[in-house]
């Protein structure tokens, strides 16, 4: 339900090019109609009130991962958050935590992409390619479904308490991506490759406090991925102890 005709948006503003100016909250009062999203309001604020406001957006339908931010204390996508869901007519917007701010709500995603690249986020094949598709059963396809859904929005990255203390931790999205491939019946990466993440900066760094699961707008449940990777690593270890050789 819409709480009043006019809403107040308090937006945290900062420009890394002017480091001497402290971050501050800018206030915008704007008329709201039912059905509008936080992104819809941001666009109107930039158009009609303050052209200098910076934020990212693209798809406006919760699929491109551009618009993650903190909305009244909760990390979410601005485009899928209805203004009317809050019990107040004041909406506070802050940039995604665990990142450096470039300007206003735009953060520098470089570390996120660096971690992503580290997990070798692609299908690894050794067998020669068949003429047609590589067969995959419906069941095997289901095993990766939740991880395939990841839109790389970094909501989880912003929510993760471990990343907050250790910037070298691989983080939920990258590990979920690793599990997406590790659990793909078609993937043939050597088991040893996972070893890179068999440590405190990898799968054992996670406190399993599930913040990432709460923050994820796509029900990816990164922690499931991390737990899955742990199991695989332990299984590999057991096999090694029993002297089973990798194919």
């Amino acid at each position: 339900m819409i709480k009043s005709d006019f809403y107040t948006f308090k937006i945290l503003r900062y420009d890394a090019k002017e480091p001497k100016k402290d971050p501050y909250f800018a206030l915008y009062k704007i008329r709201v109609i039912p059905g509008l999203t936080v992104l819809g309001m941001l666009l109107r604020i930039r158009d009609e009130i303050d052209g200098t406001l910076s934020f990212r957006s693209s798809c406006r339908s919760a699929i491109c991962g551009s618009c993650a931010m903190v909305i009244n204390g909760k990390i979410d996508l601005a485009c899928r958050t209805q203004v009317a869901v809050f019990e107040t007519d004041t909406i506070i917007l802050e940039p995604l935590p665990n990142f450096e701010v470039i300007k206003d709500l735009v953060v520098d995603m470089t570390p996120f992409w660096q971690m992503y690249e580290k997990v070798q986020p692609y299908l690894v094949r050794k067998s020669p390619e068949p003429e047609k598709e590589i067969y995959q059963s419906e069941n095997d396809r289901k095993k990766i479904d939740q991880f395939v859904n990841c839109i790389l929005c970094a909501c989880c990255y912003g929510a993760c308490p471990v990343l907050n203390r250790d910037e070298n931790y691989a983080g939920p999205a990258a590990l979920a991506k690793l599990q997406r491939f590790s659990a793909d019946s078609r993937d043939e990466r050597a088991t040893g490759v996972l070893e890179k993440f068999n440590n405190e900066q990898g799968v054992w760094g996670c406190d399993t406090v599930f913040r990432c699961i709460d923050a994820c707008p796509k029900d990816v449940r990164p922690t499931d991925g991390i737990v899955g990777l742990r199991k695989t690593l332990l299984k590999n270890k057991a096999k090694e102890l029993l002297g089973v050789k990798e194919k």
Partner: peptide, 18 residues
């Protein structure tokens, strides 16, 4: 097929084909 070989997670029929 090339996209499939590169990892595209197509939905599958019961016989494992795309």
């Amino acid at each position: 097929y090339e996209m499939e070989h590169w990892g595209c997670p197509f939905s599958r029929f019961p016989d494992g084909t795309i």
